[in-house]
Design a protein around this nucleic acid. Structure first.
Lengths: 239, 239
DNA sequence: ACCTGAACACCGTTCAAGT
DNA sequence: ACCTGAACACCGTTCAAGT
């Protein structure tokens, strides 16, 4: 009584890679990375844990597919005028894509996708830089720096947003009391910023630093230095 | 027959926090973070796993103590002349401390120590900046950026150094073949840098970007812009 | 071909009971 | 006070066997 054109009428749904990744991201948003287990994911898909290994060789393989899927949602704003604006837009788009899912930064940071979405993002960044006149080495290293700093930033941001257990004081509280307990005059002055939850501002600050550094690199550091740094730097004494 | 001055003559050694953390770091170097379990650490200490919970409330607590211990090894070079040199030295010292232990970056990144070594490092960075004339907000945000980018960098560096199983191609190989399989002209040109193992150069590049960005921020961006960017940027069209 | 059942070899953590 | 023994409630992964 099994018709060959509808091979599995009895079972509710078959697994495929795309649907599994989608469900895994939903589950991630609900329970977080720590509680995202193969067993729980299988349960949600109406299947036993072992079945997942037909489509993913390992849990790491699933996580990589999730990271790749997340990068599919990066969409930079319409078209900035100059290379600096375009670079900023790409960094912001990556940040948004990582923030879009609970523990998204940790998933992304723990994997190394070479899928089309990930490569397309990298291609965009490197493209902006090369077309702006940067050399291949600088363009490649800038891509690494941009991804590293965006990852590091969103890692911190999502760690700060993570729910802390009942009685335990949150990170800002622990930092504040530790700093005022010891001899840290400089830190004490900056504790308000360090514990600030305005992560947009933190991110934009770091972004500014990169872009301004690139701007100077591009215009050739040597003959620009005397203009900007007139008297600002102590001269190193020769031997 | 138990003398009160030597309470535990029969047992070979008692546990204390410092010795446990030391042994944990040794074990980490040998087996890596994935294989660093409470049971294995207990075995090495001649004790059962449950005993560790007399000194550490949780495994996370132990990892935080390990991160704090690692930061005790940061030692910046003798004394650089200017703030930029001092900042570079501090960033390099942090990188070295994280690289000193297998998976050191992952341990550090997964924890938030507010212990004396960690705070002393933060105090140094913020101190250099404030004494150079940076405001409290900029100093605090620069500390965050410096730590984030150093962490992100060493995370990548140690991931690249991790032993890959038998037949599996390493990350560089997978990236190379993925890039040449698709339409990624810009990426293809930068693949040599992206797969380069010269992490010192990558780190120094990123460090330069931060420092040059800071230099410009310090001298006041507005009236410097026309000097460096004369004609280099397209003007944004007004609405 | 795809999934189940059941197992293997582990985990972190808790806690009565010993010494 | 400090540690053991033993358990609890899980993990990721494998693989014969079913359909």
């Amino acid at each position: 009584m099994t018709s060959p054109s509808i091979p599995s009428r009895g079972r509710p749904a078959r697994l495929d890679r795309a649907k599994t990744v989608e469900t895994a991201l939903e589950l991630l948003d609900e329970v977080g990375l720590e509680a995202l287990t193969m067993r729980r994911l299988a349960e949600r898909l109406g299947v036993r844990a072992g079945a997942l290994y037909r489509h993913f060789t390992t849990k790491q393989d699933l996580l990589t597919a999730m990271a790749e899927r997340m990068l599919g949602d990066v969409q930079a704003s319409p078209e900035a005028a100059d290379w600096a604006g375009r670079l900023r837009a790409l960094a912001r788009a990556l940040r948004r894509a990582l923030l879009a899912h609970r523990d998204g930064a940790r998933v992304f940071g723990g994997t190394h996708s070479v899928g089309p979405h990930t490569l397309a993002f990298a291609e965009s960044v490197v493209g902006v830089l090369r077309e702006a006149g940067f050399g291949d080495e600088d363009a490649g290293r800038t891509l690494m720096t941009l991804v590293n700093f965006t990852l590091g930033h969103t890692l911190e941001e999502q760690a700060a947003a993570a729910p802390h257990e009942d009685g335990a004081p949150d990170d800002p509280g622990r930092l504040r009391s530790a700093v005022q307990a010891g001899p840290y005059p400089h830190l004490a002055a900056t504790v308000p910023v360090l514990t600030s939850a305005d992560f947009d501002a933190h991110f934009e600050f770091a972004l500014d630093l990169q872009v301004e550094g690139l701007r100077r690199l591009r215009s050739g550091a040597e003959w620009v230095l005397p203009c900007v740094d007139r008297g600002a730097e102590k001269r190193k004494a020769g031997p």
